[in-house]
Design a protein around this nucleic acid. Structure first.
Lengths: 304, 304
DNA sequence: CAAATGCTGAAGAAAATTTTTCAGAAAAGG
DNA sequence: CCTTTTCTGAAAAATTTTCTTCAGCATTTG
């Protein structure tokens, strides 16, 4: 067996001294780790460095691996055993505590305080929090029910920025049910799609600033045909809301010249999951069929 | 014997729950302590809370008292034993370290505990945390530099699921710089695009499970042409990593039959922001030009 | 100053943690 | 498809840690 092992030095006391933080060490050998070991390091890094301070048993349990896996892993990192590893962790913690600058926990531990990775993520989590605080669960559930029901055809429309989102939603909806169509409001051809919209149908419209005229026109015409309109927009709300029966406002603030569509994607994925749960029997069948077709087309790798 | 003992409560799990921090508790009973015990608390408070995290023996030694003294002392504080005391210490440390959103039980306040809105968001924030823990800021910065540099042409490719993401990235990149092309690995026409790839170019590839054969082929061929390959993948890593100079692993776990691409979007948007910052002068000009064009096309509403 | 009380730590007992072993499972290679 | 290699966790063994006991010492009090 080829054993990967980081270099280790012993000083006069026999205590091990290794270079770099454990976090860095883990990342540097991450590629050489096995499945269970990666699972373990994920747990360690997730709540770093706290998670490693309990007993080896506790750490193993919370990572969902066995204690020998933990023992082997810390040896790969270059420590003589779990206590040695824990000692190093405590040392790091101590160093961090005595350093007054490092008081704020960074998202990306190894990135400096003001790095864009941390700044951006900070704002995004705030957006998520504020968005979720404004979603009406009842409204959400009713929309889920509407979209899961195959008696209603579903049309999905997005604008310049939100095109990717609507495309993503459309792709997933197609797997779960029939009667889903993607309308490109950026194309001149969208009136053609509207021909099929009837009063029992649902039109999902994505529209964030700067709100597009063609999207508003689309909403107006779909509304005239009696369709139910679901609007996913930003906190300032697209004018489409006048025609919409259901409106979801998502926070899109970002430390950038652009807005962040993370919260829109979050809402979209949550909707997808809810719809899937509401129509699991049907969705399962369709997914299996799809899998079969994929098997016959060799699009995907059989073995990872 | 008159035993001093702070009040202690047991919850359903039998775990002890005490009020106030250990530091406060020690101070409050300090007057009632004996000589050896004061010696001990001095040591604990001197390097609080780190000193208490080793073994009882170590703590006793560094305080110059015996282990029974420590054991008696923590019982006076109201803990059932040294491990119980240590657990409390770890809890305090964790509270100090962890960010407030980690303990957010209900994201959507009005939705019930187990509502999909809360369940999904919980998992997503975990994904974000774990993803950020794995991003190497240095690698991130280098990729930012590469993509901001107009001397390198940029090709962006996505698969079935990641098509929307690559489309989104492409749209933003187009605003910021020239020489950006979107390759559809799902179409048979992608070899045509590869004709233009030279050794100074950068190919950004999105690939999450199930990894697509055509994407791997694309990477292989781009690699043969000497292009620098940036891979954005999931935690299990696409086989494309063999050809990639830069690999970013994003957590995509979701309480769903599908994976969540939120973290990929987060990384993408952060990249966009970083690239924008790195080339702000140029980007500003291009954005102004774009605005002018929009003004002439009446695509957007002039007044909201 | 003597007796009583309480404090302290050495040593051993109990309990737990950590490490090792090994067999079955999974993955890789032919 | 089969063989080989590697990985993984259950269980046992080894080690460490924690707790208890108890005899000696210090302090207080009358």
């Amino acid at each position: 067996m080829l054993t990967l092992c980081l270099q280790k030095m012993h000083d006069d006391d026999g205590r091990s001294t290794l270079t770099g933080t454990i976090h860095e060490r883990i990342k540097s050998i991450f590629d050489a780790l096995t499945r269970a070991e990666r699972q373990l390091t994920d747990t360690i890094l997730e709540n770093y460095p706290m998670s490693g301070l309990g007993s080896i048993t506790r750490l193993a349990e919370s990572a969902g691996v066995s204690t020998p896996t933990v023992a082997r892993m810390v040896q790969k990192l270059g420590y003589s055993g779990f206590p040695d590893f824990q000692e190093a962790l405590r040392g790091e913690l101590e160093a961090r505590f005595s350093d007054p600058i490092a008081k704020h926990e960074n998202w990306a531990q190894t990135a400096p305080q003001g790095h864009i990775l941390n700044r951006f993520t900070e704002v995004v989590t705030q957006n998520i929090r504020q968005t979720l605080a404004h979603v009406d669960p009842e409204q959400f559930d009713r929309v889920t029910g509407l979209l899961a029901d195959e008696r209603h055809n579903v049309f999905i429309a997005g604008g310049r920025i939100t095109h990717a989102l609507s495309d993503y939603f459309h792709m997933h909806m197609q797997v779960m049910r029939k009667g889903v169509e993607h309308i490109r409001s950026t194309s001149n051809a969208w009136p053609h799609s509207l021909l099929d919209v009837s009063s029992s149908d649902v039109v999902v419209i994505y529209d964030i600033r700067r709100y597009e005229n063609s999207t508003l026109k689309l909403a107006e015409m779909a509304s005239k045909r009696g369709a139910t309109i679901v609007l996913i927009t930003d906190q300032w709300q697209s004018p489409v809301r006048e025609y919409a029966q259901y409106t979801f406002s998502c926070r899109i603030e970002a430390p950038s010249a652009w807005d962040s569509t993370i919260t829109l994607l979050l809402l979209t994925e949550t909707l997808i999951t809810a719809i899937q749960e509401a129509s699991w029997e049907r969705t399962k069948l369709r997914m299996n069929e799809l899998e079969d077709m994929f098997d016959h087309t060799r699009i995907f790798r059989k073995f990872v």
